[in-house]
Design a protein around this nucleic acid. Structure first.
Lengths: 186, 186
DNA sequence: GTGTAACTATCTATCTGTAGATAGACAAAT
DNA sequence: ATTTGTCTATCTACAGATAGATAGTTACAC
């Protein structure tokens, strides 16, 4: 059944967003899907192959969402709100961003995994900068766009991290207001 | 030699800030200090005991630094700068905040470890709020202090996470400017 | 002072469990 | 016939943890 590969990726992604790559074993993953651990190796010979697949899967879904947002005839404000919404939804499920989680495990990752992670953050930064540029007229910050993009991204990743341990969406909520204040002045 | 306990804690802290609790084994830790893994169990019967000791050790050093900062006859601006400096120094060493790292591993932690982590972030939030209150006259933000404290903390934790994978202090640097902008207006 | 009990800090040796990974058989689909 | 996807069975490595022995140190009773 070719759909097992998809099931494996979905289950693995869920597990990694909760417990990290090091908290995921081939055995528990296999059990979740209902096959044997050796069969998981058929689809992903090494754990780093699974890691790569997960980052790519997560990234492609994420950037597909960003494409939709960018394509809408919306204000910059609305676009940034939609961007933050993606993260808030992750937090609502008591998960971390998959790439944020793997960033914490960075030193244990293979070099190909590291590169994919890097790409995820680089491309997100680029997307943000592009939106800020596309709405020059609304952009009121005195800081340059790169700085703003980085602050948006790192503050959302951090907010997810802290909200999970303290419960609720306190930090994401705090960031929401602050990001607006920074991008649009007051 | 009672100093081995201290050596173990120091070595373990270093390892956890790089690789996380799950990336640390009693064997590698013991080897680092030059004793046997079974001897580590003498000092820390279970791994969660080591975890607790590490959070407490890290917290007490951190809050000692904050005490010094709070005690100085400085402006709010200077105090916040000093606060950020602590995080920047961690990043300069390609580490994460120990508690930030363990926050990512939250679901694998014992309940006592979770509580200690929670305390660390709660107390940091309280410290920040106290400083903002103590300098009412300089505080220019329209947001309330709790929101500002949360945004400072989560954005610095996130910045550490991202700076490590992209190298340099890009995100910490971005946060520095933004935090000022938020707290003091422009 | 000496003897003894307790404590500290380590060791060797070992247990059990689980990790990732591999080989080779097998059945179904193409 | 070959490829695909799964299985059983197994390997090696390493995880955390425990038991029991062994010195060295300290505390205290006599």
């Amino acid at each position: 059944m070719a759909q097992n590969r998809e099931k494996l990726e979905a289950a693995a992604q869920e597990m990694v967003q909760h417990k990290g790559m090091s908290g995921l074993s081939f055995r528990t993953l296999a059990a979740e899907v209902g096959i044997k651990s050796s069969s998981v190796h058929y689809h992903f010979p090494e754990k780093s192959d699974l890691g790569s697949a997960l980052i790519q899967r997560y990234s492609s879904e994420f950037f597909a969402q960003l494409d939709v947002i960018a394509g809408r005839d919306d204000t910059l404000n609305a676009k940034i709100k939609s961007f933050i919404d993606i993260f808030e939804e992750v937090g609502r499920q008591n998960k971390l961003c998959l790439c944020g989680m793997m960033a914490a495990e960075y030193e244990q990752l293979s070099s190909s995994n590291r590169q994919l992670l890097c790409d995820y953050f680089d491309n997100t930064e680029k997307w943000l900068i592009k939106q800020l540029e596309a709405h020059k007229e609304d952009y009121e910050s005195t800081s340059n766009r790169k700085v703003i993009a980085r602050m948006i991204m790192s503050s959302l990743e951090g907010a997810l991290l802290l909200d999970r341990i303290q419960g609720g969406a306190r930090h994401i909520g705090a960031q929401r207001g602050v990001i607006n204040q920074i991008v649009f002045g007051r």
